[in-house]
Design a protein around this nucleic acid. Structure first.
Lengths: 163, 163
DNA sequence: TAAGATTGAGAAGTCAATCTTC
DNA sequence: GAAGATTGACTTCTCAATCTTA
């Protein structure tokens, strides 16, 4: 059989020493589902409440914390962004009166981000939209068993260094 | 039992009509694993080859396409970004001589992105780093069964509208 | 009118450097 | 010196508007 000209070739990025079909399927579906789900949730939250998914997450984590407050560095870890990015994300929330900055009395290096009463109200108004979105786009499409398997698989992925 | 003051409260973002424990675990592990894995792969690719994960994906999809070329709008769909973002991402790849823009002779509205020989060489050099990274951070941590279950679960998530 | 590509304006992220406090 | 927060410089995204061609 002679090679066909001008057609698709063996994928260089996944061939030879590359990923097999199943590995590629898992990797691509991971990237694609994330982009689509996160994109949809963000757009829906912005359209319904004028709040981004990133801002929502800040409010949500603060609402679950003791005294509705968290150190900046801890909050950055929860919302999965760098310290610098959190400083900027907070600026807009502080300007709207939903979060306050409070210096820590015991350690002058740390700043607390504190959820205000108004911020809590906004979160409570937006929460149903977000929860419904997570169900509609993600968890609601999977059975309980699939969901449990998915969670444990993703918790294994990148859980600490291989070393 | 009297309520405890100044401590964590029932999560407003996941309580009541919210997500249960398993749903929350699945959702959080999805966000966290994505942020960590994509962040690590990007840093490793930049450190080893001076190329971002986003740029790598452009080269990879072009290498797999017929005639090593794809319409801008199709390529944007593959790499999961907006048309405007792809135009800008391509600019830097064109400047380095790894990709060329070619007008379509049949339809003057469309532009093809074409992988050059030099671009293919760069991809082949960078591919082992990427493939090894995907294995080390993600697919290599899961068994074949977990991997198959994960892929089919994520393909179900956000696969078209619920309607 | 619609599709494809680009551009302008603005939002938001990263990294590295800086400042303060421990 | 190291930790926590911020800032500066830069990169890259999105959305909406524009331009060209079908």
């Amino acid at each position: 059989v002679s090679p066909v000209e001008s057609t698709a070739r063996t994928p260089v990025a996944t061939g030879a020493t590359g990923l097999d079909e199943l590995e590629t399927r898992a990797w691509r579906s991971f990237l694609k589902s994330h982009a689509e789900i996160v994109g949809a949730l963000d757009r829906e939250l912005v359209a319904a409440h004028g709040i981004t998914l990133g801002e929502y997450e800040v409010l949500a984590f603060l609402s679950e914390a003791a005294d509705r407050r968290l150190r900046m560095c801890d909050l950055a870890g929860r919302v999965l962004i760098s310290p610098g990015a959190l400083t900027r994300r907070l600026t807009s929330l502080v300007a709207r009166g939903w979060v306050e900055r409070m210096p820590c009395p015991r350690d002058a290096r740390v700043t607390y981000a504190v959820l205000t009463d108004e911020g809590l109200e906004r979160l409570e108004v937006a929460a149903p939209t977000h929860v419904e979105g997570v169900r509609r786009h993600f968890v609601g499409r999977l059975g309980r068993t699939d969901l449990a398997d998915l969670a444990s698989a993703l918790e294994k992925a990148d859980a600490g260094p291989v070393t």
